[in-house]
């Protein structure tokens, strides 16, 4: 039985990465994207991962979310050691254990706000009525109850971001990964979104990693971790 199908350990850290390396082979050269990175995120902690382009923050985020495998080291998410998971196990892990909010939001353009949330269930557990109830509850909590039947093109940037957050929370994850959540927003809206993220994560006791290069929003997080050339440096 795969570890990912067991009940999550709510007291365990949301993420434990120990001496993780990620090496890409480019022709004859080895590119080290992550070099012995160790990071622990507690079960209700919000961590800002700050670094310039090409510093390895996307790679770290991808490994923590089960999208990429590590070349070396150990990765444990909410008590599940995913280090040696194969592609199929990682797919199931992503369906059930982590949430993603992507840089450009990336909602499915031909689905309504509610259907965008339900996609997570259709791709994964297929719980039907329970998923519909959860989607309605999340939309209500995110202040989108009256926009549930709107397509993304009919929503404002902030509303789309909220739908994306709702989608990330659909599978009740222990860890949500935010990839540059404010990069496409102006300062005011960016701060509103960060406040929303903080409130939503804290009210649910859900851990989050917020990948950003914008130091101005890190105060919404519990702490910041800097990454440069694949090396982590806790601030």
């Amino acid at each position: 039985m795969s570890t990912s199908s067991s009940a999550p350990d709510t007291s365990a850290p949301a993420l434990e990465m120990k001496a993780v390396r990620k090496v890409y082979r480019m022709g004859d050269a080895d590119i080290i994207a992550l070099d012995h990175a160790s990071l622990t995120v507690q079960h209700d902690e919000i961590v800002a991962l700050v670094g310039p382009s090409g510093s390895g923050k996307t790679t770290l985020c991808s490994i923590a979310g089960g999208i990429l495998g590590a070349t070396e080291g150990r990765v444990v998410v909410a008590g599940d050691d995913i280090t040696d998971y194969d592609a199929k196990q990682l797919t199931k892990f992503r369906q059930e254990r982590v949430g993603f909010v992507f840089q450009s939001v990336n909602l499915v353009p031909f689905l309504t706000a509610r259907e965008n949330l339900l996609v997570v269930d259709e791709l994964g557990r297929r719980t039907g009525a329970a998923a519909r109830a959860r989607a309605d509850q999340l939309l209500e909590e995110l202040g989108l109850a009256d926009r549930r039947n709107n397509l993304p093109s009919q929503l404002s940037g902030g509303q789309r971001q909220r739908v994306a957050i709702g989608r990330a929370l659909m599978n009740e994850p222990r860890l949500v990964l935010f990839d540059e959540p404010t990069s496409a927003l102006d300062t005011q809206l960016g701060e509103q979104v960060m406040e929303l993220i903080r409130n939503e994560m804290k009210s649910r006791g859900t851990a989050a990693i917020v990948v950003t290069h914008d130091e101005r929003i890190t105060h919404f997080c519990d702490r910041s971790v800097h990454i440069v050339d694949g090396h982590l440096d806790a601030a």
Binding site: T58, C61, I67, F100, F102, Q103, S104, S183, A184
Partner: peptide, 10 residues
């Protein structure tokens, strides 16, 4: 590649 979804602003 699912990794293409992360770190892509497009």
């Amino acid at each position: 590649d699912p990794a293409s979804a992360i770190g892509s602003g497009s």
